[in-house]
Amino acid sequence: MSAPTIKLPAPLFARLSPHPFLLRNLTSAADPSRPATRTNGRGTQETRPLHAKASSLSHAHGSSLVRLGDTTVLCGVRGEVLPVERVPLFRPVDRGGVGLGRGELRDYDLLVPNIELATGSAPQFLPGVPPTALAQTLSTRVYSLLHSTGMVGVEDLRVWSKPAGGGEDTEMEGAGEGQEEEEGVKEEDRVVAYWVLYIDLLFVSFDGNPFDAAWAAVVAALRNTSLPVARWDPEREMVVCSRTEKRQLNVKGLPVACTAAVFEEKELGEVGTGVPEGRHWLLLDPDRLEETLCREAITMVVDCSDGETRIKSIEKQGGTAIGRELVRGFATIAEKRWKEVQGAMK
């Protein structure tokens, strides 16, 4: 007597027992030579195409909309002015001297990225609750990567008491005026304020791989950011901005994040420590279903914009499947991804 067979439609099967569902998709008993295909129809090394649209918002100084399959992120960058008198432990900077570089960015907290998932972007992210652990982790990862890649230079964010004398700045328009006002007063050129960049990310739709999408959105939005030209008004003792003139933010490089998750043959919970048992697959650009089934993930941020591949960061969480060889090989995958993203960002 054979056991009665039940035929389940695929979505139901996926919901009831997701792990065997994905496993059955990846392996084929009938044809072992068939390349592994994921539940979403992609190959294991296949990513979803990334679409980036810049400047979709009008109230932000820079913005972008990034779609990665069914993951959609909106990013808005808004600059606000932080006068130096409000900076605790402010260290004066002069124009000639070597800038304190990233020290200023980090010490004065000039970059403020925040990620909001609780917009109903997926059934598990409902509003009205404090940020989830995932949202907090993502914000912190974006925050530290922003600082470690040095994409934004602090020079762009400084506001000087006198307009720049050099030729590379576009602040020249206001120069004539500024000199008139300063008649008699021989004031030293100093930094009077900083721009603070509020980088807000809103997930419209969530289908896995939030970090890659969020990071791509941040990069696209920053490359699109133009801050108004600001000058110091000594009469009113405040920073005023020009309504017409804007200056493009100088973004260095194009770091691209590439994430893969490791799917193990053994179901969650039964894998012990030590050598991984059974087979495992590296799933590039995992979707929501795959992310819930994988306990190990690797994210590599690479930048190939100066011809050479530079690894900006490697993060790996959990598991034991990814060894030295895999990490090395993963750099090649990330390089390929970089080219795709670069194409989309143009």
Partner: peptide
């Protein structure tokens, strides 16, 4: 959340 600088920031004032 990441709150940014301790001192309050001012939205740009246009001239």
């Amino acid at each position: 959340r990441i709150n940014g600088p301790a001192g309050a920031t001012i939205p740009p004032v246009f001239d």
